[in-house]
């Protein structure tokens, strides 16, 4: 048994997330990963934008910041820049981070600033009634795509890799042990890290896509989120419609706040 009560603001429970929403499963994985990584809660800041996932900081007993839509990463950048000793965790969703906040995401990755972005991908705008997000799969139904989405979705992890993130992983809430492990690795990484966490939205996504029960969506994740080792042995045909999970990118490169500090030191000392 893990004592979650040590980490949460119990007075805010039960949380607002719908029955079977995966956001609570992710939150628990985050708390276990934080404990395992041994980081101090006093030196940890959790920043979120707007959306279902962005309600997360309201439930944790640490330094938290609930900001404006799409702008969690800019606020987090400011926090990290102001005090580079802090561990800065961004909680965001597919709508928050890849639509309105898309530019912030790619530029934080390019800059390689040491923040950890935990992106809950539930394939839909859940809070506002199930509109298509940039990650809604082609053919899936949404409030704004009642006959099926004709757009191709973003590969969010691929986007972060292309933009220069030093650590990128994908996880899902069915394989919850891997989810915790990926979050712990991201927390430990010096540099911009992103974990795309696949999580079910029964209310806005499942109901429109013949997976109305939370169990159906968990089964969908079980059958379609594929660990990297198995993924490598699959044919192109088998991979279609499925998602690779595990570490997708892990590279060391100069980190932004460290480089900034070096520049300031060199200008001050003339060396």
């Amino acid at each position: 048994m893990f004592n979650y009560l040590e980490y949460i603001r119990e007075k805010n429970f039960p949380h607002i997330w719908c029955a079977g929403c995966g956001d609570g499963i992710v939150l628990k994985a985050i708390l276990r990963a934080i404990e395992k990584s041994g980081i101090s809660l006093d030196e940890t800041v959790m920043v979120s934008g707007i959306g279902c996932s962005s309600r997360t900081p309201g439930y944790v007993d640490m330094n938290t910041l609930h900001t404006t839509h799409g702008r969690a990463i800019p606020f987090a950048t400011g926090v990290k820049h102001g005090n580079p000793k802090l561990n800065v965790i961004v909680i965001t969703g597919d709508g928050d981070a890849t639509a309105i906040g898309g530019n912030h995401l790619i530029h934080a990755a390019r800059r390689n600033i040491d923040i950890t972005v935990l992106l809950y991908n539930n394939y839909i705008y859940g809070m506002t009634g199930g509109q298509c997000s940039p990650t809604t799969p082609t053919g899936s139904r949404a409030a704004t795509a009642p006959f099926g989405n004709i757009e191709p979705p973003f590969n969010t992890s691929g986007l972060a890799i292309a933009a220069g993130a030093s650590f990128v992983a994908r996880a899902d809430v069915y394989n919850v042990a891997n989810c915790e492990k990926m979050i712990a690795m991201a927390l430990a990484k010096k540099g911009f890290s992103l974990v795309e966490i696949l999580t079910p939205c029964p209310t806005a996504f499942g109901r429109r896509n013949k997976m109305a029960s939370p169990v159906k969506l968990m089964e969908w994740l079980r059958d379609n989120a594929v660990p990297a080792a198995k993924w490598k042995k699959m044919t192109e045909e088998e991979r279609r419609g499925r998602m690779e999970t595990g570490v997708l990118m892990d590279v060391d490169k100069p980190e932004y706040t460290a480089e900034y500090e070096k520049l300031v030191t060199s200008l001050r000392t003339g060396k």
């Binding site: 949460i8 039960p14 929403c21 609570g24 628990k28 069915y174 919850v176 968990m218």
Partner: peptide, 8 residues
């Protein structure tokens, strides 16, 4: 069950 319970 504990790990996957979304509701703590």
């Amino acid at each position: 069950c504990e790990l996957r319970c979304p509701d703590f």
